[in-house]
């Protein structure tokens, strides 16, 4: 099954020879991998492996980071992201969820309505429809529907993280990047968000950076293992966990011998 898909699928994201430097320090060395449409690609690895840098390069967040330099090619649907003249339009297609929830200091409604407004949706009915749909998808609607106009930053950590996901969904992205989303979230909320991600896979491609190898095992179709800036290997998640690996370091990491 997996083999068949590998032959026919067109890549959502093609990464070739991606190298990222911060000044003299190399964060990521010559990484090449493909992300397929509607898959969840897990990225695991210890701290300072270049996982976050990898995500930041995809939507060109490096341009607002001092000293971050990216070389190589990242193609979204076949087009190099660095060739996009309108970086804002590029970023609107890519949803991002950061490790720490960022409830913008706006009302819950405005948090989710921000992205539609940025792209020019202003009529109240459409905005209300989008807000309800995205909050529902993020499993937050029932908890906040009676206080949509209270401050989003006053929600609990777990609620804020779901708000962040609702906000990312309001962009109607076809690529969703999650960077260790469960770091500040309780286990129950983590499981709820994981269920949401499984559903979202039907509609979009997801790259999930996580420091929990079991989370990658639960969610990811394929998993990539980054170590000190190298892509050690990438393959079907089950293969990695069934020890069908090419590199000893992968097994060592998965079994908790370091990291």
């Amino acid at each position: 099954m997996v083999e068949v898909e590998r032959d026919t699928a067109v890549s959502k994201l093609e990464v070739e020879g991606l190298t990222i430097r911060y000044g003299e320090t190399v964060a990521l060395k010559d990484v090449s991998l493909d992300v397929r449409p509607n898959e969840i690609l897990g990225i695991i690895g210890p701290a300072n492996s270049g996982k976050t840098s990898f995500l930041r390069a995809i939507n060109r967040m490096d341009e607002m980071t001092d000293g971050m330099h990216v070389s190589g090619r990242i193609a979204l649907d076949g087009t190099d992201v660095r060739r996009w003249r309108n970086v804002y339009a590029l970023r609107r297609r890519i949803g991002v969820v950061f490790p720490l929830p960022v409830g913008l200091p706006l009302s819950i409604f405005d948090n989710v309505a921000l992205s539609p407004r940025l792209r020019g949706v202003h009529d109240r009915a459409s905005l209300e429809e989008i807000v309800e749909r995205c909050l529902t998808r993020a499993a937050l609607w029932d908890e906040v529907k009676d206080r949509l106009h209270s401050l989003g930053s006053l929600l609990s950590g777990g609620q804020q993280q779901r708000l962040t996901i609702a906000r990312a969904l309001s962009q109607e992205p076809d690529l969703l990047l999650l960077d260790e989303f469960s770091i500040a979230v309780d286990p129950v909320t983590t499981m709820r968000i994981e269920d949401i991600l499984k559903e979202l896979r039907e509609e979009m491609t997801i790259i999930l950076v996580t420091n929990l190898v079991q989370q990658a095992r639960r969610l990811a179709d394929r998993t990539a293992f980054f170590l000190k800036g190298d892509l050690v290997e990438v393959g079907p998640t089950e293969d990695l966990f069934m020890r069908r690996v090419r590199d000893r370091r992968t097994t060592d990491y998965l079994e908790g011998r370091f990291g």
Binding site: A89, R91, F98, L100, L106, L114, S115
Partner: peptide
């Protein structure tokens, strides 16, 4: 973090300032 979150959503510099 607010600026970064807004920029990641594709807000222009002016939109980040004005809206966030």
């Amino acid at each position: 973090g607010f600026r970064e979150a807004a920029e990641a959503m594709g807000a222009t510099r002016w939109q980040v300032i004005r809206q966030v």
